[in-house]
Design a protein around this nucleic acid. Sequence first.
DNA 1: CCGTATAGTCAAGATACTTGACGATATTCA
DNA 2: TGAATATCGTCAAGTATCTTGACTATACGG
Lengths: 160, 160
Amino acid sequence: MVKLLDEKTEASPDHVGWRLWQASRAWQVEFAAAMRSAGHAWFSEARAGLLGHIPRNGTRQSALIERAATSKQAVQQLLDGLEAEGVLERLPDPRDGRGKLVCYTRKGLDALRDGDRIKLQIERGYIDRIGEQRFAALMDALRTLDAGRGDASAGASGPK
Amino acid sequence: MVKLLDEKTEASPDHVGWRLWQASRAWQVEFAAAMRSAGHAWFSEARAGLLGHIPRNGTRQSALIERAATSKQAVQQLLDGLEAEGVLERLPDPRDGRGKLVCYTRKGLDALRDGDRIKLQIERGYIDRIGEQRFAALMDALRTLDAGRGDASAGASGPK
DNA sequence: CCGTATAGTCAAGATACTTGACGATATTCA
DNA sequence: TGAATATCGTCAAGTATCTTGACTATACGG
């Protein structure tokens, strides 16, 4: 295949990493836009990344820090912002005077509900675009990939 | 370990967006770590995102701005950094007095070469983890998804 | 009680990105 | 030609995210 000029399109190569990044980014942009349209102007990707680690019934801040792969200070600052927005609140942990429990407010739970709805909408769009079978294969591959962590990525993301 | 209260794991739901995000993030962390280990200490994820849009033979800065989905100022600041690191250089466009051509230096091309090698390594690791077939299905789904853009994400990423 | 570990905070700085304003060149068209 | 307009890139300031280091308060083990 003699591509004579076309070296111009050599960027954005066809690699897993790039594809994953592009797909992930597109999803986030679509989701964030829908969330903001739904009235959750406080929504951002970084905040979404944190909220994804907070179950509906709340969690201890320290547990949250373990799940998210960032520093406790980064988590704290995001929590500060979300608390200031009225999405979350921090209550003292009755079982540990040092700890705080991170819980959703009414506003936060409303956002979660809208988020679930939007996720399903986007998912339907994806299935329309690539077909049910391909979508299932995508999810299967991603799940398997995730399950196989702990070995391969141990050195990369290890807490040190 | 009998988890008796299981609502606790309700976070991080099993949705495409989350899976894509996690997978993309894991890839980037692994890739960036390998790049830095290979001696490219200047490497960062944001810079990688930009470099992915710059073909080996260079590009016009304005063309770059169109490809990357951010503001021209963001692109410029990343370019400033990469230029200061000696990875890129900006040459005047002989055909347009206003324009600049963004080109790789020797150092930049070396990094691209290492990057290609590392990508293949990671890809091999993925295939080992999820099998050749699943990996092929993953790539197929991601490519099809990407090809189907332009309608669905038009409103989200439009320049406006 | 004492030493150590854990939970969270405070403060400062780096990076990435956004907005607004601007100068320089190119293009269009009367 | 020459003026209006558009494009290309830069400068400057502000916001958001994340990182590091230092610190307080509580818990735990002896």
